[in-house]
Design a protein around this nucleic acid. Structure first.
Length: 557
RNA sequence: UGGGGGAUCGUUUAGUGGUAGGACUAUGGACUCUGACUCCAUCAACCCAGGUUCGAAUCCUGGUCCCCCAGCCA
């Protein structure tokens, strides 16, 4: 029986469904990033929304690079955005750029001038700011506001022709300097930038501003629902003003929703860039970063990210999603489909004194609940490694693992009993001497006796040394940088721990880049896509397993 | 009274005048060759004050608190 996932029914989908009742059209959406940085999990929310809404309604969704500011944008970002989108599993109906419309946009600007609704302003940046007024005080009209249409046309043509320096003139919409909405106080719609553009080269030296470009690009593309985040709600009157004033093919509807915020993380492009530039992380693709490229490297699956975006919901509420929701998404995606193997992160040598031979081969299934995933051989041996934390000389209550005189099960192998502990001159435990029960081969005792603990292990002689990188949240504070503090002071100094000498089972010898495994009792791990090689395997911990022992242990203390 | 947006379990979300429901977390239990997974159970919420109504999370009035806006950024 197939249970098809229910389609979410958030306020935006309700609006669209309502629209569809009265109007007949194909739903068209767009994801419009500015190529000035890498995509992060917050963008994923918008991506999923736009592409899914279109797909649910048999519509189209464009990828549109909002590339109107050549001083911030470049091809590196363009390529990374395309790659991230493809990785997430989305295919855009068409690739567009705001810059594709520069010619049309220029035409619309001239239209506006002819309508007497735009003028060229000679005020300096500082003056424009002063004339704009403040949040509580109205602005004043620019002295250049009443220039004639002919003069404006001529000046704008000269702007375009490159006859002026950057900042000398701007084109402004003539709306209302007294508007309580600052966006309507004669907003600048074109500025001069003598800068080459990655798409149009040297063709233009005037570039349109966001407010002018976005609504018109939406209209040109026939976008039906222009979905954006809450901070643009104040811009909607301006969005509508351009479309009402100009003769456009259609009038898309802008709808705003709350952007994602995740606790113990930062999401703003500025802050992420600061982390990269100050080398507090290794790059945009550092596995601790909330960027899609970082999360991909860490080992997150596209499915888990899409599932997460669905789980967090879609409203206009200011929210702070718990990082646990993300962890839940990745665990539940990985659990059914990830092979189990054994890896010892912090090895402790164990000699099985009564084991008669050097080694033998055992068979271990890849998944306890899914036999179709098959099995692999693992080599058991006289000398093995177990996890340091699986042995305690003085075990507290409810500690089920190894301790002097105690018996535990080695997963898929035998029961062993700890006979003695060997320490170095500093008193550090360096080795355990154990005995095994040959009758318990395979992991169960014929006499029916039970052991509470089962621990993982690898053979000393057969294990492969690997580097394992353990990641924790990047910040110690739930909301880094809140109340004016420098967000960098909230960095978690233990957000990465590198274990250069971990031991993984031999079957991992051919582990390929990006492959994911569950290291039993430890967590989910992914072969690093940058640093891992056949000579030196490097694994990233994606997420730990749920650990109820850690809770008991904590409660004990 | 500058404008705009928002307040429901710890977190998130449903609800559109008629039993406040789900998910995550937490807690307890069952199962277990992963202290995993799975399953069961439990705890737990309508910002406040009035009003309308047989009945209000929902409608009205008045408050309170939070977020966003003064780039030639998007």
């Amino acid at each position: 029986m197939q249970t098809s996932k229910p389609i979410p029914n958030d306020f935006i989908r309700q609006i669209i469904a309502e629209d569809l009742k009265t109007k007949i059209y194909q739903v068209v959406t767009r994801f419009p990033p500015e190529p000035n940085g890498y995509l992060h999990i917050g963008h994923a929310k918008s991506i999923c929304l736009n592409f899914d809404v279109a797909a649910e309604n048999g519509g189209r969704c464009y990828l549109r690079f909002d590339d109107t500011n050549p001083s911030k944008e470049n091809l590196e970002y363009v390529e990374s955005i395309k790659a991230d989108l493809a990785w997430l599993g989305y295919t855009w109906t068409e690739l567009r750029h705001s810059s594709d419309y520069f010619e049309q946009l220029y035409g619309y600007a001239i239209e506006l001038i002819k309508l007497g609704k735009a003028y060229v302003c000679s005020l300096t940046g500082e003056e424009i700011k002063q004339y704009r007024g403040t949040l509580k005080e109205p602005g004043q009209n620019s002295p250049y506001r009443e220039r004639s249409i002919e003069e404006n046309l001529a000046l704008f043509a000269q702007m375009k022709a490159g006859e002026f320096a950057d900042g000398e003139y701007v084109l402004r919409a003539k709306i209302d300097m007294n508007s309580p909405n600052i966006n309507l106080r004669d907003p600048i719609i074109y500025r001069i930038k003598h800068l080459p553009h990655q798409m149009t080269g040297d063709k233009w030296c005037v570039y349109p501003m966001y407010d002018f470009t976005h609504c018109l690009s939406d209209a040109i593309e026939g976008i039906t629902h222009s979905l954006c985040t809450l901070e643009f709600a104040d811009h909607r009157p301006l969005y509508d003003w351009f479309l009402d004033t100009l003769a456009t093919p259609c009038h898309p509807q802008q709808i705003e929703f709350a952007r994602l915020s995740l606790n113990y993380a930062v999401m703003s492009k500025r802050k992420l860039q600061e982390l990269v530039e100050s080398k507090l992380v290794s790059g945009w693709n550092d596995p601790r970063m909330p960027t899609l490229t970082g999360m991909r490297r860490r080992g997150y699956t596209p499915e888990s990210i899409r599932d997460f975006c669905e789980k967090i919901g879609l409203t206009k509420n200011n929210t702070n999603i718990e990082i646990g929701v993300l962890e839940n998404s990745i665990r539940s995606d990985l659990d059914p489909k990830t092979a189990r193997v054994m890896a010892v992160l912090n090895p402790l040598r164990v000699v099985i004194e009564n084991y008669p031979t050097e080694s033998e081969q055992l068979e271990a299934p890849y998944h306890p609940n899914d036999p179709s995933m098959g099995s692999r051989p693992v080599t058991f041996a006289k000398v093995i490694y177990i996890e340091q934390e699986d042995f305690l000389e003085e075990p507290p209550k409810k500690f089920f693992r190894l301790a002097p005189g105690r018996e535990v099960r080695l997963r898929y192998a035998y029961f062993i009993t700890c006979q003695s502990v060997i320490k170095d001159t500093n008193g550090e435990i360096v080795e355990l001497r154990c005995t095994y029960d040959p009758a318990t081969k395979g992991g169960s005792a014929p006499d029916g006796r039970k052991v509470k603990g089962t621990i993982h292990w690898v053979s000393e002689a057969h294990a492969i040394t690997a580097e394992i990188r353990l990641y924790d949240r990047l910040f110690n504070q739930s909301n880094p940088g809140v109340s004016g503090t420098d967000f960098k002071t909230a960095l978690n100094p233990n957000s990465i721990e590198i274990l250069p000498n971990s031991k993984v089972e031999a079957s991992l010898a051919n582990a390929q880049i990006d492959e994911r495994y569950q290291f039993e009792r430890q967590g989910y791990f992914c072969v690093d896509n940058i640093d891992s090689s056949a000579e030196k395997l490097v694994f990233n911990r994606i997420v730990t397993l749920r650990d109820s022992w850690a809770k008991i242990d904590k409660a004990n203390k």
